[in-house]
Each structure stands twice: as structure tokens, then as C-alpha cells.
Write a protein that binds this DNA or RNA. Structure first.
Lengths: 335, 335
DNA sequence: CTGAAAGCGCTAACAT
DNA sequence: ATGTTAGCGCTTTCAG
């Protein structure tokens, strides 16, 4: 293993000069910097992160807390995780994966052990048990998701409230007078998952504003659930002509279920979804959707964290504005 | 932050005694050990991993290399990752997530930086470019997947060759005389992904052994691809009555496609799959399948790594025997 | 069985 | 602009 003293000797300077030349934390003459860089290259030196950290500097590791709860859509979560890793690498950080510890034991442990110097927290609930811990943590953190009380925290998310409104606005503009939200699995709402709740709020508020009828239906996944909810909607709400889906894996089965029941999309029923673009675009009938920008959220979270690490001020909540893309699944209300 | 000297003072012993009492690396009197443990509990001491490592001990971190290549089934990969994290935690290790670096740059970097003290490598190809690196690494590693030349490495995997055979054996026993393998997306084979290739080998070998006709068809995902491959199979191979599917996301669409084409399962066509049990069991028609034991593989990989870290000898390759579960999708060959 | 002391490789005062 | 030196918190000789 090549260490900093090796580089120093080779470059004919002191270890601290190498350290400073590498970190840029104090001015170094061009001549010296060049010699150091040459020595680093020739010897293939890489700073030994553990002792780097032992000496009081950062560990250059971010912890990513991903509670793998039931009802979460795995591909979306994974996309978050991948984008966090990618963004972290761009800032020369690595990512420690925390999957358990709903109460935050994992986060606390990592913090005390000094393993990470910042934390990204996913799947945030409105009243999240991890919040007190995060507030008291000596490490900066960023939440993907906005809890009920975001004071003292840093959060990023799609503006799900606005996303719900946008879907309803779109349907209302097309003349629809009765809409339904087919949501995530019930356990997601029971946990008071922030994004799911906010979408419901936005959906309902917009429907009220437009004075159109609205109902909300948490729904499991799979063919059976799709068929059941489709039948129920048709039976209980004959006037229904607009549906918003917030449940990725249910999208395709739901389209199938409606068609099997003789409901044509978009002729008889308009369908809108909040989901990643690929899911909406590659459904059997391309679905008008509000994009779930997983990658951008992950990237933003890391950027915010890096800025916090450097001591820069960051906004408390960053809400990405929703964008609706029209596809084949929505049309004017049938007469 | 409570440090080892605090514990030492509180317990009335020297720091080194605390260290030894905690690591068990030298005999400590019961009395002393108890006092140390009490002090640790009372003060809530946790060993500071970074400096622990700086002093030459392990970092208690495993790196998990997950190349997120196209064609991999995200839920399966995620299940691996989660099981690796869970198993690692059971051994008091954390997991660093590496997603990029197909050539192993990430692994090399982690090793040199001393961030992890062992590596789990996923999505192994028959000729994997990361192999030379892994062989020369000062860190122990375990591969999930078996490359063409596993000498000097430690590998775990489902015995995909046997899995392919098992599917064909099952179909042959039911009287089928012409079978087809609908495989993973083409790029997976182009990359020479180990498990996919081995399955093909087993499939073909078993078919030859039974003297029944066999063809292999890499296949993309989605409704369109399912429909296309179904039509092609029916057109080109009228005698076909048995299909093995090795492509999780295609399973449901393929069943649909066959049924839409008037082919009844299992009356006209028997279907077998190699995939996680939940996928097979919750398909529209429950599918006879060989289980993909993602969780067990992840757990095994970590166990092997822990053993290697402790210097214990480990087998070069651990191949889990495939297990076939009969469900509704297979039946005797139609007359 | 236990202590004292010397580092691990690096960073950050403190010097010059 | 650079060097010297004292640690970071822990492990591990070396010495009882």
C-alpha cells in the first residue's frame, strides 16, 4: 500500500504539503502541486479513507436509509438508490446501504460509529419516528419526502399535492365530472406515508375546487385487486369517467380489467397516472401521466447533502413541480 | 462521543483491557469482563469503526457490487441486496453499495481506500472482466454466480444447469416431445451472463438426453415481445407443447399472449419457469417453477465471506440444488 | 491476566 | 508557501 509519506518522499516535500495539495485547503505553488500530482500518478496513490476519517476529516461516505416496507414499488426505490449512488460518486462519496431499522437504529448506529458523514432518508412518513433522531444527529441529513413538520430538516420531493391537483385539473378540463383515485396499497396510507397522503390531499382539494365528485380507493396490486376495484368503481359510481392511478404495478392490470369489463379507454373512461415515465409510456395503452422523477430526486438529495457538508445554507423543502404529459389514455368526457 | 478511554476509566481498567474484553482476543478474567461490559452499557459506548480500522483492524464493512445492467430483473437484484445487508448486519457488518464500475473500478477503489474488508460481486459473466482484479485483491470476495474459470475464487449460485435439466425432465416425464426455452433478453446472453448461459446448457443437454426437440429464444420484455415470441413459436413449431420461461417480467404477458392466440395452458401447452416463487405462484395461472432462491444466495454469500475473513477454508463453488414445484401450468402432452 | 506505550495513515494546528 | 508536530480513537506489541 502506497501511503502519503511515500508520495511526499517521491515529490521531495512534506506529508502535509501532499495533503494540502490534494485537498486544496491551503495555497500551494504550481510547481509543487505539479510535482505532487506527478508522484501521486506514478505511485498510484489513493487516500486511505479510514485513516483520513480517523484524523477528523470526513469519511466520504453517505448512508442511504431505505426501509423496504411492503407496498413500496421496488423498481422506483431501486432507481432512487442507483441515482443516489451515482450522484454520490460524482462528489467522491460512497454509499452505505441501510435497509432495516424503521425506527432509525441503523442511522443512529452509523452516526455514532462515524461510518458516514451524512444521511439520505427515504420513504418518509408524515409522522416519522426517525425525525427526532435526525434532528438531533450531529450529521447532516436529507429526506426524500416531506413529513408533516419539516422544521429543522431538509427535504426534497415531487410536489405530490400539486401532482394530484394537476391530474384532476386535466380531467376537469376535459369535462369529466366524477373522478376516482386508485391509490397505493392500504398499508402505505396506514403508515401515513407522506407522498401518498399528499397526493390524496391534492386530488381531493382540486376535485372540490372544480366541484366535481371524487372518491379515493387504496388498492393492492395484482390482477385480482385490479379486477375487483374496476368492478367496484363501475358498480358504485356509474357516472365515473375519470380515474387517477397512483400505484405503478397496478396500472397495466387495471387497464386490462377495465377493457375486459367492456370499458374502452379513453372513449368511456379517461385514465391518468402518477408514475415514472417509462411505466406510463409502455403500458398497453400509453397513459397520460405526471412523471415521478426518481433519478432527479436522488441527485438533488445528494447535492443538498454535499452543500450542507460544506456548510452552505440549503432550503428547508425542495418541491419539484409536477409535469403532466398527455398520452392516449385521456379524452373528453363521453356524452 | 464516548470513547474507549471513558469506558476504561469507568471500569477502572486500561484502554487496552477494554479493547481485549470487547474483541475477546486475549483472556480476560470474568470479573474484569463484567465490569467492562457494565461500563459499556452504562455509557452507551460503541466502537468507532473508522479509527478501529485506522488502527489496522477490519472496517466491518462489506462492499456489494451490483452492476445495474439492462436486462436484469430489478426485484430479484434488490432481493439479493436486501438479503446481503440483512445477513451482514447479523454479523455486525455494514454494506457499501457499488452500482457502476463494470470493469471493477469501484471494487478496486474500495479496496485501496480500505473502505471495505470484503466484497460480494453480483451478476457474474462467464468471462468476467472483474475476475483478474478479484483474484489479485488483498480482500476476500464471494461471487454470486459462477464464471467459466472459478479457480481461486469463491462462488455461490443456484445450479442453473441442473435447473434447466429439471424443467426439461419434468416436461419429458409428462410426455412432451418438443420444448422451447424462452430466455432472458438478448443482451444478457451477449454479455455471457453466467447463470443465463448455464441454464441454456442444462436445458439443451437434457432435451438431447431425452431425444426431444428443443430451441432457445432470448426474448425481451413487455406485451409486444411476448406476443411476438408466442406467435413465432406457434408458427415455426407446430409440434411444440412445452415451454420453459427464464424471464420474470415476461411470464404474465406470455401467458396472456398464448391464451389470446387460443392456446390453453396447460391443456394445449405446458409452461415451466425458473423464477422466484412469488412470481410463479401469483401469475394469472400459477406456474410450475424452479425457485430462484435470491435470499438464500445472498445469505450464503455473506456467510462464506465471514468465514473467509476469519481465515476458515471455504468451498470454491457452492451450487444450490434446484427444486421444482408443480403448479397449474403443466400437464400431460395433448394427444 | 493486565498496563504502558507505540503506532495505523492522515489532517490540522503551529511554526517558519 | 512549506515543514514540523501533535494528535484522531483504537489496536497491538512489549513488559510485567
Amino acid at each position: 500500500m502506497v501511503k502519503i509519506t511515500d508520495v511526499a518522499r517521491r515529490a521531495g516535500v512534506s506529508p502535509s504539503t501532499v495533503s494540502y495539495a490534494l485537498s486544496g485547503k491551503r495555497p500551494i505553488s504550481d510547481e509543487t502541486r505539479r510535482r505532487v500530482q506527478a508522484a501521486v500518478r506514478e505511485l498510484g496513490y489513493r487516500t486511505h479513507v479510514r485513516t483520513h476519517g480517523a484524523a477528523g476529516a470526513g469519511s466520504r461516505v453517505l448512508a442511504l436509509a431505505v426501509p423496504m416496507r411492503s407496498g413500496v414499488h421496488v423498481p422506483v426505490v431501486t432507481q432512487f438508490a442507483v441515482s443516489v449512488v451515482t450522484a454520490a460518486r460524482a462528489h467522491d462519496h460512497d454509499v452505505l446501504l441501510l435497509t432495516q431499522g424503521e425506527g432509525g437504529e441503523g442511522i443512529g448506529r452509523i452516526a455514532e460509529a462515524g461510518l458516514a458523514d451524512a444521511v439520505v432518508v427515504m420513504d418518509v412518513q408524515l409522522q416519522d419516528p426517525r425525525l427526532p433522531l435526525l434532528r438531533s444527529l450531529p450529521l447532516p441529513s436529507v429526506l426524500i419526502g416531506v413529513p408533516a413538520e419539516p422544521d429543522g430538516l431538509t427535504c426534497v420531493d415531487l410536489d405530490f399535492g400539486a401532482a394530484g391537483e394537476l391530474c384532476v385539473d386535466h380531467l376537469a378540463r376535459l369535462g369529466h365530472r366524477t373522478v376516482a383515485l386508485v391509490g397505493s396499497p392500504p398499508e402505505v396510507y396506514v403508515r401515513r406515508t407522506a407522498f401518498a397522503r399528499r397526493l390524496v390531499q391534492g386530488f381531493t382539494a382540486a376535485a372540490d375546487r372544480h366541484r366535481i365528485g371524487s372518491t379515493v380507493h387504496p388498492c393492492g396490486t395484482g390482477r385480482g385487486a385490479a379486477r375487483a376495484i374496476a368492478e367496484r368503481l363501475l358498480r358504485e359510481q356509474p357516472a365515473l369517467t375519470g380515474v387517477v392511478v397512483h400505484n405503478e404495478p397496478l396500472l397495466d392490470p387495471l387497464i386490462d380489467a377495465f377493457e375486459e369489463l367492456g370499458v374502452r379507454i379513453p372513449d368511456d373512461l379517461s385514465l391518468t397516472a402518477v408514475c415514472p415515465t417509462p411505466v406510463a409510456a409502455s403500458a398497453r395503452i400509453p397513459v397520460t401521466s405526471v412523471t415521478m422523477p426518481s433519478t432527479e430526486l436522488g441527485t438533488r438529495a445528494v447535492h443538498l447533502l454535499i452543500r450542507k457538508l460544506s456548510g452552505a445554507p440549503v432550503p428547508q423543502a425542495t418541491l419539484l413541480p409536477p409535469r403532466l404529459t398527455e398520452r392516449a389514455s385521456t379524452g373528453p368526457r363521453p356524452c
